[in-house]
Design a protein around this nucleic acid. Sequence first.
DNA 1: GTGGGTACCTAACGATCGCTAGTTAGGAGG
DNA 2: CCTCCTAACTAGCGATCGTTAGGTACCCAC
Lengths: 197, 197
Amino acid sequence: MVEATRRRAIEDVASDLFRERGYAATSVRDIARALSIQGPSLYAHVTSKEDVLWAIVDRAASRFEAAADLAEAKASAARPGDPAEAIAELVRAHVRVVTDDVGEASVFVHEWRSLGTDRRAAVLARRDAYEARFRRHIEAGISTGTFAMTDFAIASTVILSAINGVATWYDPGGRLPADRIADHLVDLTLRTLEASR
Amino acid sequence: MVEATRRRAIEDVASDLFRERGYAATSVRDIARALSIQGPSLYAHVTSKEDVLWAIVDRAASRFEAAADLAEAKASAARPGDPAEAIAELVRAHVRVVTDDVGEASVFVHEWRSLGTDRRAAVLARRDAYEARFRRHIEAGISTGTFAMTDFAIASTVILSAINGVATWYDPGGRLPADRIADHLVDLTLRTLEASR
DNA sequence: GTGGGTACCTAACGATCGCTAGTTAGGAGG
DNA sequence: CCTCCTAACTAGCGATCGTTAGGTACCCAC
């Protein structure tokens, strides 16, 4: 792993440690040890431990947002007004963001709770907005009859659980390549949603 | 909340705190404060902080196992050899265990990583065995043609993510009662699995 | 009334926490 | 040669961590 800056190298090892043990259970000295330096030396590059967490979470959030922007634009261009196409592209984009950097994505999904009040509220709002994109297309699909399920809220929450879960179980060295996993996730998601196939 | 023993009261408030902030971010004094006593006073009832976590995780694991035993027996009696019936009962049982005590279930799902090496390995083995019950019936359904999906491993993992996710988002004061949520989860799970409906 | 059990207290231990201060070494550019 | 930047160091601060020790008050059974 060759990073552009030392700061980025710190965030990368911190991502992995936060993912494995959690933010609270990872000490500043743990992060330093993974870089073969002393604990206090980190403070030449970062202003606080929470700042490192914030940088990771913020970057992950931005990646999810940018990927969703592209996905929605792509779906809208290919098959405008088709909720299944929009959901498919959103799911595919989500999986790609996760598989591109599991550590970062995993920290975004699980460790945002450890942020201070203001930052936690900010990232929660962005998370809600991100998830609302999925819910919007699911709702649209229901109203057009493309999708059919007995409860909109439960269905969207279950689907979001399932795709967020990828960050928990994805293994870069696993059996399937990332894009094949994305294919299966898209298939399973539409299976859950669609009225008929 | 009226507990039989003081020990149990400690575990109950610890469940809630571990769920909200995580094990590492919850101090012994936090648990004590929630019971309006001093931190060290807890040690008249427990031998260590990790012991409290273990008690919670162990009890939750036992509840999941017992519920799954009953579910499989019930499905086998009602419709023997029907994988859809077995999965439906397993999902229903899982949701019931979660909704009966969200704090405990949530700690079982998320905080087992904070256990020491031996206990972590033990609970992981029980978790694998529990999940294997679901995978077994899914696999049986595929071989009989009841279920149809492109990848068995991904499909089971996604479904397990979805039902484990209930422990994260379930709110006892929410819109739907627990058994209605279970109905929807069963519906969505079978939707994901079944070849035709 | 007295002995034992239950439930709690205060004081304090050693370890570790996040972080600050002050310093040193090496390399690049004027 | 001198300066500046980057990147690291050691020493140590105050706070908090999990935990132990020793003691007090109450309650119930004998």
